[in-house]
């Protein structure tokens, strides 16, 4: 790894001040994406601002309308939290599918959303559930948050503090894992909300997670796997790599979406 200077922030204000002060500074949360990227020299910040010692960033709260998860909540905490299991069980299950136990002990929801890996799981949940990402500067709807491969609308000195997920009537996530990396080759999150149905896909998009409006329309009148029969997804524009061709991914989206709707209907 290149040399850098480490700063331990004790509060949000100090963290954002440090990020403003040093031009090429980056926050570090769980480090499970950032440290490997720095080793591969895909990232080379000269200053790291550690968020791990800031208090109050990992709380989980359930209200009558929403589940609110602190940015520093680890994947393992989200997976085992009784509040998440009660409020949005599909989200608890999703967190348990991320990586492996050691990765889940360190990795955080804020880090995952800020990283916006095109094969990560949380972006699909945020889009399908219509989450709001709360930062040190503003509130951002998930639909506005993601901005292409590993890109979001976050400014360099802006930190995610929490994520608010409106409670869904029904929701489920189905992930077709890459057996080696454990990331999604295709993951589909479906949510039936009081006013709409949302379907979000991760793993397949060549510019990150996306919503599948044709499927959403089809599920609107009847939230049942049968409503998706005969619907296909064009392979054009989907990711194609050594793990799966775009055609295969297109096919998997249909399969995973039908399974997800079936699972949501339990």
């Amino acid at each position: 790894m290149y040399e850098f200077t480490y700063h331990r922030a004790s509060g949000l204000r100090q963290a954002t001040n440090l990020l403003t002060k040093f031009e090429d500074a980056k926050p570090i949360a769980g480090g499970q994406s950032l440290l490997p990227m720095m080793k591969f020299r895909l990232a080379s910040p000269s200053n790291l601002v550690d968020l791990n010692k800031i208090e109050g960033l990992n709380g989980i709260e359930l209200t009558s309308r929403a589940l609110i998860i602190g940015a520093m909540a680890r994947h393992a905490e989200v997976h085992t939290s009784p509040l998440v299991q009660q409020g949005i069980p599909a989200l608890a299950a999703l967190a348990g599918l991320i990586g492996d136990p050691a990765v889940r002990h360190r990795g955080t929801i804020g880090g995952s959303l800020a990283n916006n890996d095109p094969t990560a799981d949380y972006p699909a949940a945020a889009l399908a559930l219509g989450a709001t990402i709360v930062t040190t500067k503003r509130k951002i709807a998930a639909d506005e948050f993601f901005a292409g491969l590993f890109e979001t609308v976050l400014e360099p000195d802006e930190l995610i503090t929490k994520v608010s997920f409106p409670l869904a009537k029904r929701a489920a996530y189905q992930k077709f894992r890459n057996p080696a990396s454990r990331y999604a080759i295709v993951g589909v999150f479906v949510a039936k909300r009081p006013s709409e149905v949302r379907v979000a896909v991760t793993g397949a998009g060549s510019s990150g997670a996306f919503r599948l409006t044709a499927f959403e329309e089809a599920l609107k009148s009847r939230f049942h796997p049968k409503s998706l029969e005969g619907l296909t997804v064009p392979a054009e524009g989907l990711a194609s790599d050594i793990h799966a061709s775009a055609e295969y991914r297109a096919h998997l989206i249909g399969v995973m979406a039908r399974r997800a709707v079936a699972a949501a209907n339990g």
Binding site: L35, A102, R106
Partner: peptide
Amino acid sequence: DTSQCGACVVHVDGVAVKSCSML
């Protein structure tokens, strides 16, 4: 050295972590 293999797992404050992926 890239958080894949688990040869470096230790416990930090009681939980398993990959010590190649923590400063």
